Each structure stands twice: as C-alpha cells, then as structure tokens.
Simulated scan of single mutants.
Amino acid sequence: MATACARLSMIARRVCTSGVTRREMPNNLKGRKTSSQLWLRRQLADPYVEKAKIEKYRCRSAFKLLEMNERCGILSPGMTVVDCGAAPGSWTQVAVYLTNAEGKQDDKPVGKVVAIDKLQIYPIDGAFVIGNMDFTTLQAQEKIRKHLAGSSVDVVMSDMAPNATGVKEMDHQNIVALAYVALRFALVVSKPEASFIVKLWDGGAAKNVEDDIRKFYKTVKVLRPGATRTESSEKFLLARGFKGLKVG
C-alpha cells in the first residue's frame, strides 16, 4: 500500500512533465457548438484527464487533493471525513484510500468517509454516499450528522462550486455563499484541531472568507495545486487547528 501511495503522489507531482502522449485531436468537429469544441480539445490535451482514467479516478480533480495532501498532510488513516459537493466522487476516492476507510491496511486504523452532492453519486466502496441531496439544506446536514452518530469530524472538505453564469462577480458571490455554508457546518461537527478545506474563485470577497475562517482555526493557507488549469481562477483555503466553539 505504501508503494501505491508513493506512486500516486509521484503522479500528482510529475504528470505535467512526464512525457505523457496526448490523444490525437479529432479531425472533424463539424456540427458541434464552439463551446463544445473548445471543451473537447481541452479535455484531449489535458494529461490529468488521461491519468485519472489510468488510475481509475472519476475525474482529474483527484490529483488536486493528492497534491495538497502530499504538501500538507491533510488526511491519514483513522480520520473521519465529510466531502461536501462530492460528485462524481474523485475526492471521496482519495479520502477513502488515505483514511483507510475500506480497512484494507490491516496495521492501520480504519477511517470513515461521508460524501454528499445534489447530483447522483455512484457507490464508492468505503464511503457512505448521499446523492441527489443538496448539502446546503438543513435536511441534508442532519442526515450527515445522523450517520456520524455523535462522532466528531477530522476534516471537512468542500470542492463545491455553483453553476457558472458567465458573470464573474455573480459567480464569485455564489461560490463564497457555498464556502460559508461549508464553514458553518464544519464549525458544528469538527473536533478540536480539525482541518477544513474549501474551494474559492478569485474575487473581492475571498479575503473576507479567509479572515472569517481564521477566527476559528489556528492557521489558514492558500493553495493552488499544479493540477489546476491555467485559465482557472480557483484556489483552495486550507485551515488547520480548529479552536472549537466557545459556549456562553
């Protein structure tokens, strides 16, 4: 298992420079919308897309979490993790492996992973999956807490993003709103010293989100993994050392 984990980490670091042979571009894209043509060309030219298929990850975003974990040591065997906005499930796959949620590493503690998304999520061995349910609703969050059965959480992670409108400021405000929903949930379910990781897009409110998170965690670090596409404005805030909530 250790060898496999090292191999995955190496892929996360070196995939862009590993000399991966890119798939040939289709010769005939007639009839497709311009946006569809651009998306297809980008997918075919992206080495992370091919690597995700080879390593049996559901999408390329797995390598973002792998890289952040390698750099910062976010996940480890025995941890309890909640993955917000998990579909199609690549972060959940990584979390299951790194927390030993399947129990395949006999000499290490067994973790627990809960994944939720408003879209359908096909089952993932080792994870409790909640599909077709909006995490931002109280009903969804109560369902997660019920499954946790009183257990506190080591890591809440959110790769949630709204459907893009094309209006930059509106999209920024929408993803900020999702970040605050994830933060409020993390404050309720996390154990002391827990971690929180959330995706944002660049914009005027990003610093406010960072400052607000810092009120509850000892450190906050801004991360932009190598697997992030060049044209993307996304970044991740990694908060460590949950201080707990003061009562009274």
Rank of each mutant, 00 (worst) to 15 (best):
V110T: 11
A101G: 03
L223M: 10
D117H: 08
Y48L: 07
D46C: 04
S76H: 12
F236N: 01
S18M: 14
F216G: 08
N27W: 08
S18A: 15
L119S: 14
R14V: 02
K56M: 09
F63V: 10
L237C: 09
V96A: 01
L29H: 09
E193K: 08
M1E: 05
Q139S: 13
I54G: 00
C5V: 14
V167S: 01
A2K: 11
N163F: 00
S18R: 12
Q141K: 07
T99Q: 11
Y180C: 05
E50D: 09
G73F: 10
R42M: 04
L98A: 02
E50P: 00
S36H: 14
A87D: 03
T136N: 06
A62W: 08
R42L: 02
G31K: 04
V247K: 14
V167A: 03
A86P: 03
G73R: 13
V198T: 06
N100G: 09
W39A: 13
F242P: 09
C72T: 10
R240D: 12
H172T: 01
V209Y: 10
F135L: 02
E50S: 13
S152M: 10
T137Q: 02
V96Y: 02
T137S: 10
T34M: 13
M133L: 14
L8I: 03
S152F: 08
R240L: 15
L200T: 05
T165L: 04
G204D: 05
L245K: 07
S233T: 15
E102W: 06
